[in-house]
Design a protein around this nucleic acid. Structure first.
Lengths: 335, 335
DNA sequence: GTGAAAGCGCTAACAT
DNA sequence: ATGTTAGCGCTTTCAC
């Protein structure tokens, strides 16, 4: 390991024959401070010559900001296109010279204080909860302490006390999906999806209304945990039941894939014997057979937009507390 | 936004009736410095009372370390179980109080200097390239400048000049997979997989040898880019050709899924008409139909182990430069 | 066993 | 238009 020889702004100042302050003014392009072009040039020359890069830490110390935000996601989000959102956040933050520090929601008691402590110790300037279950008491505490944070999820909770939220309009596509099922000539529908712990899931209700509007027969909403075996058993029982639905709406991609798989195992052909569609985005929608018709979320933009909103909050600017992004139905082959 | 009132170690010192130095000694549990238990207690009491958390930035400034490492991954890795590796890295680093800063490989000219600049400005203490294409000139430069870094990939490059590598033994399972194909009673095999740009891919060669050892007929190795349409066209042509293989080994999960999908489109039944297996881990291996037999990688451990190795490097400890982790064949239904 | 004091490298208010 | 200087909050050497 090579010893690191630090070049400081002092060195640059000496080399350029100016003061440290001038170096700082030039490098930071400070407004209301006029520097003669030749001085400016001299500074840049010295910077180049000495290969100087300002110590980010020293700067942060002065400014009391780390220029990094913590992005929190659930442990279980190990799949799907979540990385897309991360990319959006990264690019959104990069424009303001912020970086992403990745955190995982451990669901442990300590996690909450971990966040607060990251914030108090100036290690992180703000937080983005991306598809993570945020319990109310945590939100309340963050609000209370004035910690800047933002929540990214498929739909907004609405009760954004102090934080901001980025969501999508995916619920409005559910009636449209139901209409598609209807158009394909079927009548019996069912919904399968996750059982949420930390908040109410608006999807089953939206489904129920959409079924009613389209005069379809509702075979029921079936909810269970994210456990793969449990999902498959639930779908299996549903497809084997006497009131077997002809169309299934899956609350998220995972439930959709298992529906496809179980149907295949039972020898049901899609879209011949069964129609299916899912809510949410996944790379696998294009890989599976048949490819899955789904309501796709603007994952990248959700991250990008969220990042910008958080930066605004961190800079004490006034911003919309809620932003809804457009989603769209993408027809593939399962419906 | 609430104004942040910082409590400094000075405040704690005053409250506890000791000096700032003592506070530092107590909080950092400095060896060879003996503190009377009652003094120690007084400090902790004051810390609790004032709800003090040390400024991470000030500490970093003194120590010239940011306690964060940059994790670089390719833009294209938006799917699969990559998050598992990230979790492993996160947990591995957390033990040493390091955090993850997420970076994406932009493949642009500027990216290289971005890394160097993060390092030079003390913003990041080291780097982990996780399933990212690292070009040789970058590695050389990092070696030259003594930048601590580590590469995580399914197999090691071997030429780890200055950096360290974590890989797997997945190549040794290829003959075993070939033997399984043989056992199932087929004779004609083919390999489909990605065309790598930045390094040689050892998989096609391992495949060729495995085929020979098992006395199977090699219908050839077919390589193309990661483009979905291109992959499907390639697989389609292969399955329609007169020398259609009875078994296909996919170089990675994506190629495996497209093989499944194209086969289904052509009405080929798996495992009846065609056998398939893939190299690598994906959550979809369990979702698709039939579930995919594959060589699974220890994604979490690769991250966890890699994190520990990098910490050792950053602390100038002597470490193995290469670590190979065990992978395993998981039988599902496609073979 | 504990304290005083010197910085780390930067920014910004104030002076010139 | 540029320089002087006083910290930011911590660690650590050296005194006592």
């Amino acid at each position: 390991m090579k010893k690191k020889i630090r070049v400081s702004s002092k060195d640059v100042a000496r080399e350029a024959g100016v003061s440290q302050a001038t170096v700082s003014y030039v490098l930071n392009n400070v407004e209301h401070v006029k520097i003669r072009p030749e001085t400016r040039q001299a500074v840049w020359d010295a910077v180049k010559k000495l290969n100087y890069s300002p110590s980010h830490i020293a700067r942060g110390m002065k400014l009391k900001r780390s220029m990094s935000v913590g992005v929190i996601t659930d442990r279980s989000v190990t799949n799907y296109n979540f990385m897309k959102t991360l990319q959006g956040i990264k690019e959104g933050l990069a424009r303001f010279n912020y970086t992403i520090t990745l955190l995982f929601n451990t669901q442990e008691e300590t996690f909450h204080s971990e966040i607060i402590s990251y914030y108090n110790s100036n290690r992180l300037d703000g937080f983005i909860f991306a598809f993570a279950a945020v319990e109310d008491y945590i939100r309340n505490d963050l609000n209370l302490k004035g910690v800047p944070y933002l929540i990214i999820d498929s739909h907004v909770s609405g009760q954004s006390g102090g934080g901001c939220e980025v969501g999508t309009d995916h619920l409005i596509h559910i009636p449209g999906l139901a209409a598609l099922f209807k158009e394909r000539g079927i009548s019996r529908m069912a919904y399968v999806g996750p059982l949420l712990r930390h908040r109410e899931d608006p999807k089953p209700r939206a489904y129920k209304e959409a079924v009613k509007i389209n005069h379809l027969v509702d075979c029921g909403s079936y909810l269970c945990s994210f456990d793969d075996d449990e999902i498959r058993k639930m779908v299996h029982d549903l497809l084997m039941s006497p009131k077997r639905p002809q169309g299934i709406l899956a609350g998220n991609p995972r439930f959709g894939f298992h529906t496809l798989r179980v149907a295949a195992e039972l020898g049901l052909r899609i879209p011949g014997d069964l129609l299916a569609a899912s809510l949410g985005t996944s790379a696998f929608h294009d890989f599976c057979y048949p490819p899955m018709t789904a309501v796709e979320l603007p994952l990248f933009d959700m991250g990008y937009t969220g990042a910008e909103m958080l930066v605004d909050i961190m800079q004490d600017k006034d911003v919309d507390r809620i932003r809804i992004l457009p989603s769209e139905i993408v027809l593939r082959g399962s419906l």
